[in-house]
Design a protein around this nucleic acid. Structure first.
Ligand SMILES: [Mn+2]
Ligand SMILES: [Mn+2]
Ligand SMILES: [Zn+2]
Ligand SMILES: [Zn+2]
Lengths: 151, 151
DNA sequence: CAGTCTATCGCAACATGTTGCAATAAGCAT
DNA sequence: ATGCTTATTGCAACATGTTGCGATAGACTG
């Protein structure tokens, strides 16, 4: 797990967004954004705290979670929920996608925007809702497990 | 919140299922099933613990959560996840349905089997997954909030 | 009914988040 | 550079679950 800096672009966008709102850029926030950038893909809050503490042992859970909320509020981070409901975070920048969890074999599959399009359209047609693909987690049985169970 | 007994049918089905597996029918389980039956609709683990303790102050969280897992394993209870990811339980017997959560206005809407059918079909077509409707929670913007935001 | 076996219970410790509050420090003004 | 204002931090307490373990008590046997 190499130490990795968030791209200059992201850091500067963040600083600008904060300044515009009278908010502050801190060393803690820099570290948390760096860790998120290095954790490409998915990481739970607890995992992020652990990695942040490698860089700054005095960091506390409250700061990490509040920063994650801040980043989500600014649209720079997203979360979805794993099979146990725990939040899992990633920086915006990854392509938007949903998640599928198989309760038979535990497999987790990503659902890219193209594959999701007809699903989101069906949701809107049936309910009027515009679903957040990034936040969508579907639980069920994958094709292989359905075949194995003869369903 | 009246004290209410689970229907005889359910209790007897439970006792039979347990006996067949060398498991036991206990006073605690009776109370938890009764509370679930009285909490028609949705209740979180914490809410259920509180209600169980009204009947039996010595009941502990571990017993309640383990019993909920047991009931789910037997197919007699189900859960889905609220907007915060927290598990929300109900007894089987309610018609199977999914949930929609609007992040704009906070509205929560149920998705019955008929309305869900085309959505589940789209999921299977796109991914091969058979989705669990009971466990499905879709987060996004309701029609009214989409209109308000001009999306 | 008393005795045995062991599933289940309650407890204690832990894991993961959340919140109120006083101390700190970022950003700005002088 | 120095001081001010107040957003942010770290702490402590709390909320919600989870897990290992020894004590309790269902269910069955004789
Ligand atoms: Mn779940
Ligand atoms: Mn969420
Ligand atoms: Zn599977
Ligand atoms: Zn809405």
């Amino acid at each position: 797990m190499p130490t990795e800096r968030a791209g200059k672009g992201l850091t500067e966008r963040l600083q600008a967004a904060l300044k515009g709102r009278g908010q502050r850029w801190t060393e803690q926030r820099q570290i948390i954004v760096d860790v998120l950038a290095a954790s490409d893909g998915h990481a739970t809050g607890a995992e992020l705290i652990e990695r942040v503490r490698e860089q700054d042992p005095s960091a506390t859970p409250s700061t990490v979670y509040r920063t994650l909320d801040l980043l989500e509020g600014l649209g720079l981070a997203r979360h979805h929920h794993g099979p146990d409901g725990r939040e899992t975070y990633h920086l915006e920048g990854t392509a938007e996608h949903g998640h599928l969890h198989c309760r038979g074999c535990g497999a987790e599959k990503e659902l890219d925007a193209a594959a999701a399009a007809p699903i989101l359209k069906a949701i809107t047609s049936a309910t009027g809702f515009g679903a957040d693909l990034d936040h969508l987690s579907v639980h069920g049985l994958c094709a292989a497990c359905r075949a194995a169970q003869g369903v």
